[in-house]
């Protein structure tokens, strides 16, 4: 975490992640409607009646993919949860990824898409993976998806060797109607991100006591499907 030694990580994230999402919620939501193929595939592979979690569900765009399973989405932003809760037959609650209100070993699956890269220390990122894994049944699987450092063909152009912890601007266009000046304008917000390098997500999963089932790279992101490490009997 860059030059914020004195600030507790949860305070830092409150200011540089949660407050920003709360403010940009509706604009953010209007730009987030296309499901990423890997996530879509994972969701569509679930058996009907499966019960699972979408940790850091945002506006709930992945709640729209499969209507034959029951998902409890959670997010810290109550403005985003309000939008997410409209996706039937699912549910959405306001909760913190590191203090999830779910019982251990109770869920068939979990997804956490573009969430844990907002946590500002390696310990907290590993703790988040552990919290997700803890909710899974023995045979349950979780899909975790994070932004990659290696994305030289993207608009941002970052690659190996770039800074991994950074503030990424979000430009919100404000139309004439909502602008105090009566003129169309824009406002820039900055969100904290930790960009994952190759292999780092897998290390987080191992450190959290999990096991990688499958992992890969999809358009500027690293993803991994993981489960709880089975204890040999």
């Amino acid at each position: 975490m860059a030059s914020t030694e004195e600030i507790a990580p949860e305070k830092y994230e409150e200011q540089h992640v949660h407050e920003v999402y709360e403010q940009i919620a509706s604009h953010f939501s209007s730009t987030r409607y296309k499901a990423w193929p890997i996530v879509k595939q994972f969701m569509q592979s679930l058996t009907p009646g499966s019960v699972g979690l979408d940790v850091g569900c945002g506006n709930g765009k992945y709640l729209a993919v499969n209507h034959d399973v029951f998902i409890i989405g959670s997010d810290r932003s109550s403005n985003l949860v309000k939008i997410a809760s409209q996706h039937q037959p699912h549910a959405a609650i306001v909760a913190d990824t590191l203090a999830l209100p779910h019982q251990a070993a109770s869920f068939d699956f979990a997804i956490s898409i573009a969430v844990i890269h907002h946590l500002s220390t390696p310990e907290r990122r590993t703790e988040a993976v552990a919290a997700i894994l803890e909710c899974l049944k023995d045979e349950g699987k979780a899909l975790i998806y994070v932004w990659a450092l290696e994305q030289k063909d993207s608009r941002r152009g970052w690659d190996e060797g770039s800074e991994q912890d950074l503030m990424v601007p979000w430009v919100m266009k404000i139309g004439k109607k909502n602008s105090p000046s009566g003129e169309a304008t824009e406002k820039t917000f900055h969100r904290y991100y930790h960009l994952y390098r190759s292999g780092e997500l897998e290390s987080n999963i191992a450190a959290a006591g999990g096991e990688v089932v499958e992992s890969g790279y999809e358009k500027d992101n690293w993803w991994a499907i993981c489960k709880r490490k089975q204890i040999e009997s």
Binding site: I72, A91, I93, D96, A99, L100, P101, A104, S106
Partner: peptide, 24 residues
């Protein structure tokens, strides 16, 4: 919030999760 959802929720306090009193 659905009645069904309550069946998959417990207290968010870590120390409560191991207690059967926290669910439902």
């Amino acid at each position: 919030m659905k009645v069904l959802t309550l069946n998959f929720l417990t207290c968010a306090v870590k120390a409560c999760k191991s207690s059967s009193d926290s669910f439902p």
